[in-house]
């Protein structure tokens, strides 16, 4: 009975919204809003087929490469800068500035510097997504508990083992937060770089549909981007729960005290 209730809570509102959408478009033959059934069949026609390999897979590959690079760079740079107070103070104003630049304006800059190609699109994602990871990692390394840090030192833990046993785990709640922000920025930049400068990819295709007034196809593209966003968020929360299991456990203990 309880399981049934929680299923009801998950499904009720989405089902009601779809039913409403279906009812409202039942009689009308609106140009702007497709009917639910129409949208599903268009979605299948448009995206499941050759276009999946030609447009969707390359876009997602660039997104994945860009995100992995941004995360690696952000964590490595964050460890280096975070563990030195001098480096931290030297770099703070410059990093604050770079973080504040709205990432999409990097698209025209990289178009000039690199040209219009795959490298540019990956670099756009890297250059936008790296900042939240970098700054959060710095913050995490800075905030390491001093008792832990001193204990590690008095046990003679130095160099690589110090990083893998103390610094990295201690900073992980912070850089995971950064990674979550990086995921959504990366997805936004993937779409923009393709809308702005491309002849293929998801962003380009969706703008093409809009320009040719293929409204139902355009809606199906919006739905696909939404699904990718939801999928990324799902993957993130799955990974986060594993990586930070110790952290959530710790917090529960602290709160129950």
């Amino acid at each position: 009975m309880r399981a049934l209730r929680s299923v009801f809570y998950v499904v009720a509102l989405p089902a009601a919204l779809v039913a409403l959408w279906w009812l409202l478009t039942l009689g009308s033959d609106s140009f702007w809003v497709p009917r639910p059934g129409e949208l599903v069949s268009t979605f299948r026609e448009v995206w499941i087929g050759p276009r999946f390999m030609d447009d969707v897979v390359p876009s997602l590959t660039r997104l994945a490469v860009g995100l992995v690079l941004a995360i690696a760079l952000g964590i490595l740079g964050g460890l280096a800068i975070g563990s030195s107070r001098v480096l931290r103070r030297l770099s703070e104003p410059v990093l604050e500035f770079f973080r504040a630049i709205p990432p999409p304006v990097l698209v025209p800059i990289l178009m000039v510097l690199v040209g219009v190609n795959d490298t540019m699109k990956v670099l756009v994602i890297v250059s936008g997504a790296v900042w939240p990871v970098l700054l959060n990692t710095i913050e995490g390394v800075r905030g390491i508990d001093e008792v832990l840090s001193d204990t590690a030192k008095s046990y003679g833990i130095h160099g690589t083992s110090r990083i893998t046993m103390l610094t990295l785990p201690a900073a992980s709640p912070n850089f995971m937060t950064g990674i979550r922000q990086a995921l959504s920025i990366g997805l936004i930049l993937m779409v923009i770089s393709e809308m702005f400068a491309s002849s293929s990819g998801l962003g380009f295709t969706i703008v093409q549909f809009q320009r040719s007034f293929a409204v139902t196809e355009m809606w199906s593209g919006i739905v696909l981007l939404g699904l990718i966003g939801v999928l990324l968020a799902g993957i993130y929360s799955f990974v986060e729960r594993r990586v930070l299991r110790w952290y959530h456990g710790l917090k529960e203990v602290e709160q129950s005290e």
């Binding site: 929680s6 809570y9 998950v10 499904v11 009720a12 509102l13 989405p14 919204l17 702007w32 959504s184 997805l187 936004i188 779409v191 923009i192 809308m195 962003g203 969706i206 703008v207 549909f209 809009q210 007034f213 409204v215 355009m218 809606w219 593209g221 919006i222 981007l225 939404g226 966003g229 939801v230 990324l232 968020a233």
Partner: peptide
Amino acid sequence: RRLTHSTIEFLRPVPSVALIPLAVLL
């Protein structure tokens, strides 16, 4: 809160740039 949870979690990660074509059309 329980009724809207799934809908909010679904709509939140939708990248707003996906709405660009719609915004232009409208």
